[in-house]
């Protein structure tokens, strides 16, 4: 880090104008991320956003940095590879609920327990948007959609509980209707050394514009505003049991830092011989001495 840093503007992280629907929750996520990156004094050249497929996966088309737009459900393994190959980069994986908790659920769970220093940003809108409104893994039971015309039979995934149960070292949840708080959460998630999961309620205003409650259709933003419980300073995020109780009590509708483990070392600290040197610089032939020692074991 240089001794004096010129303040970075969030605009440094802006590229083309998004093609998302007006009022899409992902706008709030994008601006919060731009603000967080600026606040952290990052350079677009040192950030990699690895995204999945879906409306959310387009985020690195609009966020200026190095971007790798991958496959449906596959952003998290790619992001871990990027980070391990060059730990000097800030690596953010991003995608939606279908991407991370459906087709990519296996990768998600194992990334949680592996604890590579990657921030995983999930734009959870509880519906498949880009493919036009089908049921997603976080859609509530009974959700009517083209693929579940009689209401979905499946129970929704509880991603925060999955993460908590598998030893995720940083778990937060935000709401794109509250971009200031969301941005502050992103700053903390990125700063955390280890795998951080930031689930963001990021409404789809096209395929889940309203939520029915007591026979009344509420605007999706209003519904979240009515139900989200915002954690204050009195909450201690360092106890897993408390975090579990909190999620159960509020049916996961909580925003803030839900759990933080600052004592468990990240994955790379368990790799013998691993250094912070970017592996691009290690891609050289073996030295004579190492080569000879390795060859000797075959004699």
């Amino acid at each position: 880090m240089p001794e004096t840093t010129t303040p970075v503007s969030p605009k440094a992280f802006a590229s083309e104008w998004p093609t998302w629907c007006p009022r899409c929750g992902d706008f709030g996520v994008l601006s919060a991320l731009q603000k967080a990156a600026a606040q952290l004094g990052l350079s677009p050249d040192d950030v990699v956003v690895v995204s999945g497929i879906g409306c959310s996966g387009k985020i690195n088309s609009y966020f200026r940095s190095y971007g790798l737009h991958t496959l449906h459900g596959r952003s998290v393994p790619v992001a871990q590879g990027v980070k391990l190959a060059n730990p000097q980069l800030t690596v953010i994986a991003a995608g939606g609920d279908g991407d991370g908790y459906g087709i990519g659920a296996g990768h998600f769970m194992h990334a949680v327990r592996r604890n590579v220093d990657v921030t995983y940003l999930v734009m959870d809108n509880q519906v498949y948007g880009l493919t036009k409104g089908q049921t997603s893994p976080t859609s509530p039971q009974g959700f009517h959609s083209p693929t579940t015309p009689n209401g979905s039979a499946d129970n929704p995934v509880h991603p925060l509980r999955v993460a908590l149960a598998n030893g995720c070292t940083w778990i937060g949840q935000g709401f794109s209707g509250d971009p200031n708080k969301l941005s502050a959460l992103m700053v903390q998630a990125i700063q955390h050394r280890g795998f951080s999961l930031l689930n963001v309620f990021s409404p789809c205003v096209t395929y889940r514009a309203t939520i029915e409650e007591n026979g009344e259709k509420l605007d999706v933003y209003q519904w979240f505003k009515n139900h989200l419980y915002s954690l204050d300073e009195s909450y201690n995020p360092h106890d897993r049991g408390t975090a579990f109780s909190l999620l159960l009590e509020h049916n996961d509708l909580v925003t803030g830092v839900i759990y933080e483990d600052t004592t468990t070392a990240p994955y790379d600290s368990f790799l013998p011989g691993y250094t912070t040197t970017p592996m691009a610089e290690l891609a050289v032939p073996l030295e004579e001495d190492s080569f000879a020692k390795m060859a000797a074991q075959f004699q």
């Binding site: 393994p77 590879g81 190959a85 060059n86």
Partner: peptide, 20 residues
């Protein structure tokens, strides 16, 4: 965790400049 993840990690590492 599986071969999908394995190859994807190798792709990520190659993208970042490693020989992976």
């Amino acid at each position: 965790e599986d071969e999908m993840s394995a190859v994807l990690m190798a792709i990520g590492a190659n993208y970042a400049g490693a020989r992976a």
